[in-house]
Computed example of a mutant assay.
Amino acid sequence: MNKQMATYIQENMTDIIARWQQMMRDEKDEPSFQVMSEEMVNQTSREFAGLMTSSLLESHQVYENRLQDFAEKVVRLGWSITFMTKAIDHFAEIVYEGMREAGTIHPDNMDGFVHEFANWATPIRNSMIDTYSKTWERTVSLQKIALQELSASLIPVFDKVSVMPLVGTIDTERAKLIMENLLDGVVKHRAEVVLLDITGVPVVDTMVAHHIIQAADAVRLVGAKCMLVGIRPEIAQTIVTLGINLNDFTTTSTLQRGVEQALAWTNRKIVEVEEV
């Protein structure tokens, strides 16, 4: 029966993919197909159909390799696990109905085919969920490592003045890294003024503000001043709405203004020099 199922898919691939794409587009709660280009939809659909057929015809190792490659791709495309399971169920449903309409499945052999379809779809669904989850966890882990490497470093911009640009979401783990790098950098660069630049922080909530306040307090304990820069209008509105107290901070909307204030604190200023 597996061979009959595979033969039907191969002989009717174009029609199956067209019907499958339409069913996936009808999933209103899962807009994955709506945000993909038509070329990408067609390419991904063919790869998915090939994966489904591979499980019927090819060795376990070949199928597992295909599954790993496809899972990595759909994680990058932003497919959810729910969308993945619906994709498998819809594909199996289309093949079953097509074989029934073609007369391949009839009352005399229906029970056997129902059993075969269950044995086909269920392991694929389980394998896909398992592979998808592992791929997603690995992707998130790599992204977190990359984000940590790209941010939370103290950069000296002038004598006694340093900047720490913060990028991305700040959780407890990142806050600890920020604190360590901040204190080490203040001592290493002998900074008297530190500018915490939150231009790249998408959301400032109570927890993020708490971490920033802790960092500023730690800087003051080692004898330096701390300034918060890069406060966008929407961030300022959020801070006011949440009642977050930043009265102990000097704050500016841009890094440039923050640098000017930091230079003033260290008895310097930026002046224009006329060309002679």
Rank of each mutant, 00 (worst) to 15 (best):
E97G: 09
T241H: 15
G230H: 08
N245V: 03
T7K: 10
I244G: 12
M52G: 01
A49S: 06
S253I: 01
P165L: 01
G223H: 12
C226T: 15
T254V: 04
D111Q: 11
D130C: 12
I145D: 11
L177D: 10
G230M: 07
T53M: 08
E272P: 01
E58F: 15
K160T: 13
L166V: 04
R125Y: 11
V95S: 08
G258Y: 08
T250R: 04
R125Q: 10
M179Y: 05
E72S: 15
S59I: 06
E11Q: 10
R46M: 12
A6Y: 01
K144L: 11
F117M: 04
W136E: 07
N247M: 10
E39R: 11
F33M: 05
T85W: 01
F48P: 11
R220M: 07
D108W: 05
A175Y: 02
R46P: 04
W20T: 03
L196W: 13
K144Y: 12
M24W: 00
G168A: 14
T122I: 14
H210L: 03
Y8P: 05
T254W: 13
K86G: 08
T122W: 12
D26P: 06
I231W: 04
V273N: 03
K269H: 05
Q256P: 01
R66S: 08
E30Q: 10
G50W: 03
P31T: 09
D171S: 02
E116K: 14
P165T: 00
V157G: 04
H106E: 06
G78L: 03
W79H: 11
E116V: 15
K28Q: 06
Q256A: 13
L57A: 10
R25F: 09
S59T: 12
I129D: 06
R232C: 07
P31M: 07
R66F: 06
R220D: 02
M128D: 05
E97V: 13
K144W: 10
M1I: 15
G98Y: 13
K86M: 12
H106V: 04
Q261S: 12
V203H: 14
E93P: 00
R19I: 10
N2R: 08
K176Y: 04
T169G: 07
R19P: 00
T250S: 14
P156L: 01
N2A: 02
A191H: 03
E180F: 07
R76I: 05
M164K: 02
G185H: 11
P31W: 06
A264K: 05
F91D: 00
V271N: 08
R220H: 09
S141D: 10
W136S: 09
R66T: 04
K188Y: 15
P107G: 03
I16M: 06
M52P: 00
K225H: 09
K28P: 00
F83K: 14
L228C: 07
V187P: 01
I145M: 12
R25D: 07
I170L: 08
V259D: 01
V161S: 01
L56M: 12
N42R: 11
I17T: 01
Q34L: 05
Q22H: 12
V240S: 09
Q214G: 13
T135P: 03
M24A: 09
I170G: 05
E116P: 04
A215E: 02
I213L: 10
